[in-house]
Amino acid sequence: MIYTITANPSIDYVLQLDQLKTGEVNRSTNDVKLPGGKGINVSRILKELSIDTTSLGFVGGATGEMFKNLLATHNLKTSFTNVKDDTRINVKINAVKQDIETEVNGTGPSISLEEKDSFMNQLRVVGDGDVIIMAGSLPKQLPDTFYLDIAKTIQKQGAEFIIDTTGQALLDTLSSHPLVVKPNHHELAELFDVEFKNESEIVEYARKLLDLGAKHVMISMAGDGALLVSKDHAYKANAPKGTVINSVGAGDSMIAGFVGAFMETGDPIESFHIGAACGSATAFSQDIAVKEKIDQVYNDITITNID
């Protein structure tokens, strides 16, 4: 079983307008409310790929009920921990003619020790053959080591893990050997305080993450495609042609495609191909991509060995 953890889920209120004028009244041309959170996005993509998951996380208050109602339309298996405080609302503004996206994210609920313990008790069922994908920010009162503590716990029970994070938090996970990490090329450069002049340097520093313990490294490069790097080989996925409508969830979709395929096939190259297709298909969609779009984009992607 694949478990996704979204510790700080949200209602994503996505607004589209022609231009964003600060300090003035703006009127949207379109708006939609979506169940948000990086782990939720992963579960939704895996559902499109006919792979079952169980979504875990903290939800609470009136907005928590609204969140669960929005999520119910996607027929996901969930086991949320109810908390006293309200689930947050994030506002995403897409100014089409300016080609800019602006986000205002809520802070989320405070989690009590009792609520945290209730959540941790659910992890006792995780074991051999399972994988946990942890993604997104943490709500208040949870320690910065929350995800890493979970990883260490479930590893003792025989499960694999992925933590989708950046910076020092990413580096701290590597000695526990995550199944895959996926920084973008800017985040990778920031990790090592360097500037990349070419693709070969990106591959070189991706392999440093392998040396530190990661099992696979994917690097997303926006319009330049993506890389999958191992100690012996490096592969590139081209960026398929399409109009980027909403980049929210694209990285989550890429991880979902890779992990879902890898758990079924054990083939990192095919998993990378599917992951790249999922990421681009979501970027070309207003919401998380559907299977038809993923299949279409998959056929436009070629995986090349660049060693």
Rank of each mutant, 00 (worst) to 15 (best):
M1C: 05
T6Q: 02
P9N: 15
L17I: 01
K33M: 11
I40L: 10
T53S: 03
A62F: 09
T63Q: 12
T63E: 15
K68S: 12
A72I: 11
T73A: 15
T73H: 14
S79Y: 01
F80A: 13
V83D: 05
K84G: 05
D85W: 01
D85A: 08
V96G: 04
Q98C: 02
E101Y: 12
E103G: 12
V104I: 13
T107H: 14
S112W: 06
L113Q: 14
D117K: 14
Q122E: 06
D128V: 13
G129A: 10
V131H: 02
G136Q: 03
K140D: 03
D144Y: 03
T145V: 09
T145I: 04
Y147Q: 14
K152T: 07
K156L: 14
I162D: 03
T165V: 04
G167W: 01
Q168K: 13
L170W: 04
L174E: 02
L174P: 00
L174M: 10
V180L: 10
V180W: 02
H185G: 05
E201T: 10
E201H: 08
K208C: 08
K215A: 09
S220Y: 06
A222T: 07
G242K: 02
T243N: 12
D252N: 11
S253V: 01
F262L: 02
M263Y: 11
P268I: 07
G275P: 00
A277C: 03
T282V: 08
I288C: 08
V290M: 07
K293F: 03
Q296R: 04
I301Y: 05
I301Q: 01
I303P: 00
T304S: 12
N305K: 12
